[in-house]
């Protein structure tokens, strides 16, 4: 039997918001250590990797490893029935055909239960190699979302150039060009407001704006986002999820034909 209780149910709602526009369906792999999800978008340009550790849940039990294939549009309908201050419990039997979502109000006066049919998804998992990235940037997630939104008005692609002086996001299109430069923060009161660059060597890479905008839907999960870049390999955009885990997005670069 599988059971996972999260007092901060709003976290699961935010997680779903962060992946539902990129993925139509995904397998939730549940084991003693926690829940993992890995899936590519339909175009196979990006990959979502979500980890929720069992010790981050308020109660967690997983007697046997199980994989729950879910249609994320259906899961979104169910999550809309959950109040932001409600407690979520996910439950399933071993070898399940369905998963149950139980939503409890904080005072326990109201309990809602929704049972969703599972799908058999024949999804391959990709092996993600350990990589020492040439540049790792930590910056406020709201600032990253804003830059992606602003620059995607001008063109389909965004160039991210990172050097020791700072990071430059730029784009060009029919109406003209735009760029945003961020300098590394010299002193800051709050670490989550800082721009921090760890650089081994400068990197310049080009990415499709529409995916970056999709990744930015994870902004409510964390005040900080980290971008990891190396020449000619996928970008990693990571949002930590409080004490429970992270969502990482991998995006294949655009490369000269």
């Amino acid at each position: 039997m599988f059971e996972a209780r999260l007092v901060q149910g709003a976290l699961l709602k935010k997680i779903l918001e962060a992946i539902k526009d990129l993925l139509t369906e995904a397998s939730w792999d549940c084991a003693q250590g926690g829940i993992q999800l890995q899936a590519m978008d339909n175009s196979h340009v990006s990959l979502v990797s979500l980890t929720l550790r069992s010790d981050g849940f308020d109660k967690y039990r997983c007697d046997r490893n199980l994989t729950m294939g879910m249609n994320l549009a259906s899961m979104t309908k169910i999550m809309k029935c959950c109040g932001n201050d409600e407690i979520i419990t996910m439950k399933a039997q071993d070898e399940p055909d369905t998963v149950t979502f139980m939503f409890e109000s904080k005072n326990g006066d109201k309990i809602s239960e929704y049972e969703m049919k599972l799908m058999n998804l024949d999804q391959d998992h990709l092996g993600i190699p350990e990589t020492d990235y040439a540049c790792v940037i930590k910056m406020p997630s709201g600032e990253f979302a804003r830059i992606c939104r602003d620059l995607s008005q001008f063109g389909e692609s965004m160039v991210i150039a990172c050097s020791k002086n700072g990071i430059k996001f730029s784009t060009s299109g029919d109406i003209g060009t735009g760029n945003v430069k961020l300098a590394q923060t010299s002193s800051v009161d709050k670490e989550e407001e800082a721009v921090i660059i760890e650089m081994q060597e400068p990197v310049t890479l080009t990415f499709a704006c529409k995916y970056l905008n999709n990744f930015a839907k994870a902004t409510p999960l964390s005040p900080v986002v980290s971008l990891s870049l190396s020449p000619d390999v996928p970008l990693v955009v990571e949002y930590k999820i409080e004490d429970i885990g992270y969502v990482r997005y991998y995006l294949a670069p655009k490369i000269e034909d």
Binding site: M40, H44, L47, H125, G127, I128, V233, A252, K254, E256
Partner: peptide
């Protein structure tokens, strides 16, 4: 011009 690559060309299947 630059072409979009696929994520599976960077990460092998398990």
């Amino acid at each position: 011009s630059k072409g979009q690559t696929r994520i599976s060309s960077f990460f092998g299947r398990n």
